[in-house]
């Protein structure tokens, strides 16, 4: 049984459709990253799952129980049993850390002793037990983050929703908190949906990544799948760096590129226009390469260089270890590529 099933979800604001019928499942105990640019409808999607927004149409099932159908909620908010971390954390400034965490437990009618036990446990888990009596405003950004997590998971929700929780912290801390989130998620095995516009977050945390654009779910799959076999031009472009070249399919397994005819899996097609997609590090500079180009730009990356070269098929990006001079002519070939259709 899936922890979450979303079927054909739709939502409009002021007659503008922001979520255009998306469907996906999340397996129990997994972490799904909902990746997309801002305004793509991902926040609206999890707000609908959370019950903060009513869908116009579609179904949401949480652990097999129908939570909403059409524009009606079919179970109460409490029965959804959701934990949520907001982008601005939304820690209540007038309550102590302890009280912040206690609120959800009180709502669920737990006895005082039980509440105490759970709060102690969760504070220990995030290593913040020292700060139980503190007010959120007295804590650092990272500490507030941990409290927000603690508050969301203390009720042991069926689903944990995180809305870009890392967007407001600096890079160094981000790393730590990300690890912490991963660790806690794996330990508690709470099914989690994590919203982000940062592919690094998505790849590092998620079992599965769902890429959204303009209200549509473009692709869902493991990080590896998303990265190496994007299902659409948008995914190819949005996730990681990529090169996309116009090509023509000339026969089954044969395409015509600006650098000549090449062998490539044409996914059953025998004719027509298509796009050729390849990642910068799948390009090799080698004597026997089939394309030629001129280096026009070089950036140092640490463990190698990033080049832009000008070719007869337009500019392409590539990552290699060796150093070349700007203006130098090189020959290259692409080691791994994929055909995409519009």
């Amino acid at each position: 049984m899936n922890a979450l099933e979303v079927k054909n979800l739709r939502k409009s604001f002021n007659k503008k459709e922001v979520v255009k019928g998306i469907s996906f499942d999340v397996e129990k105990g997994q972490l799904l990253a909902l990746l997309g640019p801002s305004g793509c409808g991902k926040t609206t999607t999890i707000r609908m799952i959370a019950g903060l927004e009513m869908p116009d149409d579609g179904e949401i099932l949480i652990e097999g129980i129908l939570a909403s159908q059409g524009h009606k909620a079919t179970i109460s908010q409490k029965q959804r049993h959701i934990g949520m971390i907001f982008q601005d954390l939304a820690l209540w400034p007038h309550m102590t850390v302890y009280e912040n965490i206690e609120f959800g437990l009180k709502v669920n009618g737990l006895a005082k002793a039980e509440r105490q036990k759970r709060i102690d446990a969760v504070l220990n888990k995030v290593k913040m037990h020292k700060y139980a009596k503190a007010y959120p405003a007295r804590l650092s950004g990272g500490q507030q983050q941990l409290i927000a997590i603690a508050r969301a998971i203390v009720t042991e929700p069926k689903l944990l929703l995180m809305d870009e929780p890392l967007s407001n912290i600096d890079i160094k801390l981000r790393e730590d908190i990300r690890q912490e989130i991963k660790h806690i998620q794996q330990e508690t095995q709470i099914t989690t949906i994590y919203i982000t516009h940062d592919q690094e977050d998505a790849f590092l945390l998620a079992n599965k990544v769902a890429v959204m654009n303009a209200g549509i779910l473009e692709q869902i799959g493991s990080p590896e799948e998303i990265y190496s076999s994007p299902a659409s031009l948008f995914v190819a472009d949005f996730v990681g760096e990529s090169n996309v070249i116009n090509v023509k399919i000339v026969d089954k397994g044969r395409i015509l590129t600006p650098w000549g005819e090449l062998a490539c899996n044409t996914k059953g097609q025998e004719r027509g226009n298509a796009f050729l997609f390849f990642r910068p590090h799948y390009v090799k500079i080698e004597k026997g390469g089939y394309g030629d180009g001129v280096i026009i730009n070089r950036n140092f990356l640490g463990e190698g260089y990033k080049y832009r070269i000008s070719t007869s098929g337009g500019e392409i990006k590539l990552h290699v270890r060796e150093i070349y001079e700007i203006g130098q002519s090189v020959r290259f070939s692409v080691k791994r590529m994929e055909i995409l259709f519009c």
Binding site: A50, G51, L52, S76, Q77, K78, Q79, R80, H81, I82, G83, M84, F86, Q87, D88, L89, A90, L91, W92, F103, G104, V107, N108, R151, T155
Partner: peptide, 14 residues
């Protein structure tokens, strides 16, 4: 006061 302050409460089922 941001909306999220209340929503953080609503989402728990309060």
């Amino acid at each position: 006061i941001p909306y999220s302050m209340e929503e953080a409460g609503t989402v728990t089922g309060a």
